[in-house]
Design a protein around this nucleic acid. Structure first.
Length: 470
RNA sequence: GGCGGCAUAGCCAAGUGGUAAGGCAGAGGUCUGCAAAACCUUUACCCCCAGUUCGAGUCUGGGUGCCGCCUCCA
């Protein structure tokens, strides 16, 4: 069996075939750098990181590009509020992006293009659109004429005639609406208002609209057509629809073969939105939750379905992660067993790998893939516990090593890895005891209990409890 | 008004027409000086109605309920 992917464009699952054999070009819409990214953004970064890892696991060479939008009204507003500059705000939150994404174990992209670094390409594209009558200038603005693009609406499955302008209730009466020939025309270039950052252009000083930057950056970084273009489901319309209109009008071929969109992270069944004020930032979440537990939480549902963000769900994921982590960590116990080889890597357990691959091949069914991990982890954890509590294990060493290696490898494909600077280190710093010292105390307590010296045993137990070890 | 999605155990969540994965939580038990830990065992007729079929959670039609998109959002 081989990989099939649900393509938003065709509304079907399709066999995955790349433009160039063995190579995947992938573009993921990144953040607008005006704040820490929220838990919904995190789903995008984590899930498509898994897509990337799985493609690599399948042997593809993946070129992965994710942009930063560093020109935008929201950034500008924040800068004004802070008495700062757009550039300063953007730099700060781009740095914050890396900090948080790293903690979530999201692999670094091959390239992170920015709107401000792509002004030439943006202007060139607008110019080409204008020459071919897809764009028109009006008072220093430049708009895309959606009527000129016959296929407008093909990605989101709608027709211009059937759309209700302003149905979302978000659009106020804009003063530039009368400049547009059609209400669905959108800005490619915006004339600068006094005091705003601006770039010189044939249409006057101004800055790019939102959609055009992605068209220009894809072209610059990956060429005309990419294999996978991805983002949150809300980007389907208008953002990705507009990207298609911009790019395909000029290049005359598909911008992307597969359009992938992940579902929302909802808060108590409702979409996160600024107006409701229920936005949860990943940066804040990671203060109280293990990043890997959050990653697990995000992968426990299929990517196209909405996830409800609840404390119960997070707590459950935290427990689940502990199970996986225990199994992975028991490497320390297993490696002491005679016959455990460090050098010779065993072949992986084929039935587990097959089931894992089969699940992932079916449009990245991570919940099933995870069930394979848990089955391995439960066995390993039991063996590890028996080793610790009874000093022996029933599982043959070869089987043990094979299972552990399989779990380790598959968990890696999902990006679930114990991070070196995790809470172990923090805990150790907090209680002032090293692992070795704790082991000694536990041993002393066991000796005392064997000798029926319960008072001493309880005393050590209390001491350990005070240090947060149970 | 247009387009689309979802409804499976206490919670989360998979599921290719043949008698329901996995996680979390809970319950009972073993062990123990007590407790914890650990280990073992255990928990579903799949929103409603009708139909197709030897057989439907899985297909068809009709309900009911919830959700998303319809120009600045992941």
């Amino acid at each position: 069996m081989s990989l099939i992917i649900y393509n938003t464009l065709t509304r079907r699952k399709e066999p995955f075939e790349t433009v160039e054999p063995g190579k995947v070009r992938m573009y993921v819409c990144g953040i607008t750098a005006y704040n820490y990214f929220h838990v919904g953004n995190a789903r995008v970064f984590v899930f498509f990181d898994v897509v990337r890892r799985y493609l690599m696991w399948c042997g593809y060479r993946v070129r992965y590009v994710q942009n930063f939008t560093d020109i935008d009204d929201k950034i500008l507003k924040r800068a004004m509020d802070e008495g700062s500059t757009m550039q300063e705000v953007a730099e700060r939150f781009i740095a914050a992006y890396f900090e948080d994404a790293d903690r979530l174990n999201v692999l670094r992209a091959d390239s992170y293009p920015r709107a401000t670094h792509t002004i030439d390409g943006i202007q060139r594209l607008i110019h080409e659109l204008e020459q071919q009558n897809y764009a028109y200038a009006a008072d220093g603005d430049v708009y895309y004429a959606v009527r000129q693009f016959a296929e407008y609406g093909k990605l989101s499955g709608r027709k211009l005639e059937e759309m209700q302008a302003g149905a979302s209730g978000r659009v106020e009466l804009e003063d530039d609406n009368d400049k547009k020939r059609n209400p669905f025309d959108f800005a490619l270039w915006k004339a600068a208002k006094p005091g705003e950052p601006a770039w010189e252009s044939p249409w006057g000083a101004g800055r790019p609209g939102w959609h055009i930057e992605c068209s220009a950056m894809v072209r610059q970084e990956l060429g005309d057509s990419v294999d996978i273009h991805a983002g949150g489901v809300d980007l389907t319309f208008p953002h990705h629809e507009n990207e298609i209109a911009q790019s395909e009008a000029v290049i005359g071929k598909p911008l992307a073969r597969y359009w992938m969109h992940n579902g929302f992270v909802n808060m108590d069944g409702e979409k996160m939105s600024k107006s409701i004020g229920n936005i949860r930032l990943t940066h804040d979440l990671l203060v109280t939750y293990d990043p890997m537990a959050f990653r697990l939480f995000l992968l426990q549902a299929h990517y196209r379905k909405p996830i409800d963000f609840t404390a119960e769900g997070l707590d459950a994921a935290e427990s689940g992660w502990r199970t996986l982590k225990d199994a992975l960590q028991y490497h320390a116990q297993f490696a002491k067993l005679p016959g455990w080889s460090i050098d010779a890597l065993p072949d992986l357990e084929s039935s587990s790998v097959d089931r894992f691959n089969q699940a992932m091949d079916d449009d990245f069914n991570t919940p099933i893939a995870l069930s394979v991990l848990f089955e391995l982890a439960k066995d390993l954890r039991r063996e590890g516990n028996q080793l610790i509590h009874q000093g022996n294990s029933d599982m043959p060493i070869e089987k043990l090593q094979q299972s552990w290696q399989t779990l380790k490898s598959l968990a890696n494909v999902l990006g679930l890895e114990i991070q070196p600077a995790s809470e172990e280190v923090a805990l150790e710093a907090a209680n002032g005891l090293t692992d070795a010292e704790i082991e000694v105390l536990i041993q002393q307590r066991q000796d005392a209990r064997k000798a029926k010296n319960f008072a001493e045993g309880d005393r050590i137990r209390n001491e350990l409890q005070e240090k947060g070890i149970t």
